[in-house]
Structure formats: structure tokens, C-alpha cells
Nucleic acid binder design. Structure first.
Lengths: 200, 200
DNA sequence: ACTTGACTTGGGCGAGCGTCCAACACAGAC
DNA sequence: GTCTGTGTTGGACGCTCGCCCAAGTCAAGT
């Protein structure tokens, strides 16, 4: 094998882990499967990571970061708050449809973290980032649409995460985009009623 | 070991599997751990079940059944639709708080089923039952409160499942009942606006 | 009393797992 | 050219997994 810095290999192993886990599930992401996916021999894995859990830690952190950047990028001004929020939600649903395994991995990793004392704190961290993303989304959308929210942001953010989580879970089971869109419409209708024109 | 019919042992193994998986996660529910929890020797497991997957099949079916009966039992008349629905939702949240592992197992089993070709159909079946439960809940609540829904039942049922799924997932991470209750209030406010007095 | 069929059990099979180690290869510093 | 530190690797360790077999035990039917 050509020589390569350990840092570079770490990055490639993380990417390989995401690929194999998206395809076949977190449980199938064994050290051997990840190393093979990255085209490395097994021993390289433990030269770069102290343990499988160490890789899982970095993987969760990496994915949450990606998710947050996506939320930030999804925002663009629309005619009103309903359209602005609707576009962002549509962006997420399109991403979900294109990378179902990706979102599935996030759930699986979260559940794995909840059950693994060594990783338990990452479950909290993952959702902390989700709430942060939701807050960014709601705040930016309101600004772009020139309105303000009538409920405290923490409650609103938790509602958004709740709905996206639920919509994702149900979609992952039946891949029924039409029904998910119907639910999205209803959620948007309601979301719009929770705002009022911004006073300034 | 005292003699016992295979059917009886199957039931005890299922109960043991639920206990050990609620406590330590689905992944920890190995054939050995389940047999030990049931106080049987390992070989008994494979005398009663052809394979671990066969037990998982029956476990998912059993749990979905329990869940459906719980939804049916949770309904009792309130002053209006908001209170009627609110009581049912509260009943669920109380159950969740008392048996977190139980609901966690349902998610883990669902994700496991999604990734296991042999069990894939059960993921669909599980959610089919959820939608059925939600339909029962919504229909009964509307009847008890003397109102009717202004949206088609399939969309409403999917919304309920979406929200309960999302609320459960988020609660399982932080066990923050207060925040979950706040979300519940907002959801109920909106739910009430989706009804109108029943014409008759 | 004997047969039959259902139930019980200890032990073992082959496979896969995470992790580790000792030996080796190589680039850059001296 | 030698040394040093970083990267590479085949092979093995101990363990757990799902599953299976062959020999046993026992209650009921005849």
C-alpha cells in the first residue's frame, strides 16, 4: 500500500464507514468491512483508531456537522413564511429521498449510542445539534419572510425536530413520498399560523 | 428442568426476550441471553424456535398487538376534543415514562427489520398497525367529543404517528418530560382546530 | 410392561467479531 | 550511510455468536 498520513487514512476510513453503514446498516459496519471498503488491510484500522467506538464517535460528530451545514444552506427567501419554510422542508425531503441510508444511519447510530455507555453522551450532542439547526432554520425563515414567532424558540425548535424525526421514520418504512408531502402541507399550514408580522 | 409444552416455553421465551431487550437493547438479546433470562438452557431455545429471526418475528407482532390494545383502552370521554385527545396522549406519555426501554425496543426492532430482508415485511406491518391504532384513536375521540375531522383520516392518522414517533424519539434522548409536554400542548391546540361540530 | 412421541440437555461446530503484536518498509534528518 | 520515527502488514488471540446433533428423560396410550 502506498504511504499515507494517519490523518488522511482516518478521513478515508470515516468515509468508508459511512458508505458501508448507509448501504448495509450500522451493525454491518465491522472493522473488517470498513477496512475492506476503504481498500486497506485490517491492521490499518487500529493503527488509525484506538477502537471501533472511537471511529463511531467521530462519525456521529461528522454527520451532525454535515446536517447542520445543510440546514444552514437550505434557506432562501420565499414569498411568505409558509413558502420559505416549505422550501427548506422540501430540500430535506429531497435529500432524504436521495440518501435514505444516510438518514437511517443517523437513527441507528443514535440508538446505538443510547445503549452504549461509552457513547451515551453523543446521543445528547447529536440532538443538541438538531435543535441548533432547527433554531437556525426557524430564525432565518422568519427574518427572510419578515415575520416573528409567537411561541418561545425552544418549544418551536423541538416541534420541528419532532416532526422531521417522525416524518423521516415513517418515510423510511414505506418510502411513500406522496403521503409524507400531505403531512408536510398540514404542518406548514399550522406553522404559518404561529407567526405574526414583525414589528419594527 | 420441569417438563413444559413447547407453546408455553415459546411464550416464556418471548417474555424473556422483551425483558432483556428492554433492559440492554435488541443487539444484546442473543439466543444465550434470552434463554438465560428465561431460566432455560440454550438448546431449549432452538427446540422452540427455528431461529432467532423467528422469535423476532413473533416478538414484533406481539408488541404491535399490545400497542394497539393500549390505544383502544386509552380512550375515555372528555369535555371537548382537545381534552379527549389530550388524555389519550397523556396516557401514552405516562406509559413511555414508565417503560422507556419498551418503546426503545420497538424502534430498534423496526430498524433491524428494515435492514434484514427476512424481516423487512414486519417493518411495514408494524406501521400498518400504528396507523390503525391512530385511526381508532382519532375516530373514537371525535365520536366521544361529538365532532368530526375536516381532513381525510389517512393524512390525520399519519400525522399522529409522525408526531408520536418524533416525540418518543426526542424524549428517549433527553427524558425531558416538561419540554415534551410543551410540544404536546401545541399539537393539541392545532388538532382541535382541525375539527368541526358533528352534523347529524 | 412396552412403545411412542414429545421434551430436555451437554457439548461442540464453524464463523465472525474487536483487538493486538512483532516484524517489516520506507522517507527524511543527520 | 545510518538512525529514527512514522506507516504497513500477516497472522494470531480470546471471545461470542447462531445453530445443531445425539443421547437422554419422562408421561401418556396401548
Amino acid at each position: 500500500m502506498a504511504r499515507m498520513s494517519a490523518d488522511e487514512r482516518r478521513a478515508e476510513l470515516l468515509a468508508a464507514a459511512l458508505r458501508v453503514m448507509s448501504r448495509d446498516g450500522v451493525a454491518a459496519g465491522t472493522t473488517r468491512a470498513i477496512a475492506a471498503e476503504a481498500g486497506m488491510v485490517l491492521a490499518t484500522f487500529h493503527y488509525c483508531f484506538r477502537s471501533r467506538n472511537e471511529l463511531l464517535r467521530e462519525l456521529i460528530i461528522m454527520l451532525a456537522e454535515i446536517e447542520r451545514e445543510a440546514a444552514r444552506a437550505a434557506m432562501q427567501p420565499g414569498r411568505d413564511i409558509r413558502e420559505t419554510l416549505g422550501q427548506a422542508l422540501n430540500g430535506y425531503l429531497e435529500h432524504l429521498e436521495k440518501n435514505p441510508g444516510h438518514e437511517q444511519v443517523l437513527f441507528e447510530l443514535n440508538h446505538h449510542a443510547l445503549r452504549t455507555p461509552e457513547l451515551r453522551d453523543l446521543a445528547d450532542e447529536q440532538y443538541r445539534q438538531y435543535y441548533e439547526s432547527a433554531t437556525i432554520l426557524l430564525t432565518t425563515a422568519a427574518e427572510l419572510a419578515g415575520v416573528e414567532w409567537q411561541l418561545e424558540m425552544p418549544v418551536l425548535a423541538r416541534m420541528v425536530v419532532t416532526m422531521i424525526d417522525g416524518a423521516t421514520t415513517t418515510w423510511l418504512v414505506d418510502h411513500d413520498t406522496e403521503k409524507t408531502q400531505a403531512v408536510r402541507e398540514v404542518m406548514l399550514d399550522y406553522g404559518a399560523t404561529l407567526t405574526r408580522p414583525a414589528r419594527r
